[in-house]
Design a protein around this nucleic acid. Structure first.
Lengths: 217, 217
DNA sequence: ATTCTAACATACACACTTGTTTGTATAGTT
DNA sequence: AACTATACAAACAAGTGTGTATGTTAGAAT
């Protein structure tokens, strides 16, 4: 039953997709390789051909997800300094929108949130920490630039604003993913971010803006 | 080896404590009942005498943790309306302090965060959702009172303030617990909450306060 | 003092999962 | 056309955890 290379790559992908679904539904440690095999329409032999073992399959699945957030954040250096805060806000909102519409990424994140990281999954944890730390550093430097230009409210520091944003987005996504997506992630996130970023901005008296404060509601 | 009732209750508790440690270290599904038994200094027979199975043991462990947050929040109804925001802030800070100093609760929460909730653990998830919903409703009504008294900044609504606070605290604790407690939970939390609550308050011109803004830094 | 039973320990049977090994048909290679 | 490595399927071997059944001892009841 030797398949062509394209077909082999196809079965490898189908195994990865099946693993994503099965890991998401049953949890990584509760899922059996036979579950994955059946979901992919193959036998365990195929899995052991393409992957060394379950941990390796999980790592490959983790590697297969692209993390465009890094690129997005990296670009903020080149953005005009005047709108740093607006840029970060848009970036975050866009990221939430993408998560809300990408079931693939939803499942991956949920799997990562629910898995134990005990023993052989340590490299995943460490890589994730490292990525997070880079994101936090990027964000904090962006907030620092905003402050230096006088665009950051004095209530906040670059560090505290970074953490507040990070924790709020993290908490939002965690609750949404772990508790059955019981609300509109994009809408609630957009609203919360709008208000948080409003508090980030200095309390300037809106000189040029018309004073129709009530029209918002 | 028949023991007295007090001794039996003692072994039951030792089993619960061992389960807490073992579940925390190896994850619920990766932990063996024999691991728990050995950690408790008994055999699996003792566990099966006191508990029906692993799921039941986990549920009993979950039930054994007291959730004083409910009482704390319930009392806010009786607080003076003038300081609702300050009261909520203090409540949250106190709760963080308690979590930071109570390793028992840290382990329980970590276990809950890391476990899969697949299949037979559904009741736990549902109960937790229900508890969370009550907390959120309490918080939101408190914020509503603050707004009615004119103590809530117009940038925020009771709903959005509740969610922002909830998500920020949740994200804070989640990161702290899952990523190895790499920062000072109480200090960072207190600082972040201070700034968030500052943005909750209306931007009153501090008439009576001396204008030494720079002395803070 | 005897009996009963709570509170375990021990032993066993069973299912399940993993990893490996063997088989096999076919795509590519010469 | 023959050969070989590929891409799996199928069978096998071994370990592991669970649930239960049985054994044992000492507190408690009469």
């Amino acid at each position: 039953m030797r398949r062509t290379k394209a077909e082999a790559e196809e079965t490898r992908n189908s195994i990865l997709h099946a693993a994503e679904r099965v890991f998401y539904e049953k949890g990584v440690s509760n899922a059996t390789l036979d579950d994955v095999a059946k979901a992919a329409g193959v036998t365990r032999g195929a899995i052991y051909w393409h992957f060394a073992n379950k941990t390796d399959l999980f790592l490959e699945l983790y590697n297969s997800v692209s993390l465009p957030l890094e690129d997005m954040i990296a670009r903020d250096i080149e953005q005009p300094a005047s709108g740093v805060l607006a840029f970060i806000e848009k970036l975050t909102v866009d990221w939430l929108d993408e998560l809300a519409s990408d079931e693939h990424r939803q499942r991956i994140f949920t799997i990562l949130l629910r898995c134990s990281y005990g023993g052989d999954l340590m490299p995943v944890l460490e890589r994730q920490q490292e990525v997070d730390d880079r994101h936090l550093a990027s964000l904090e430097s962006a907030f620092a630039r905003a402050r230096n230009e006088g665009h950051l409210n004095e209530n906040w520091t670059p560090h505290s604003a970074t953490r507040a944003l990070w924790w709020m987005v993290g908490g939002l996504c965690t609750e949404w993913l772990l508790f059955g997506r019981r609300f509109d992630l994009a809408a609630e996130g957009r609203d919360g971010l709008k208000r948080l970023f409003a508090s980030f901005r200095p309390a300037t008296i809106d000189i040029e803006a018309p004073a129709d404060v009530h029209s918002i509601a």
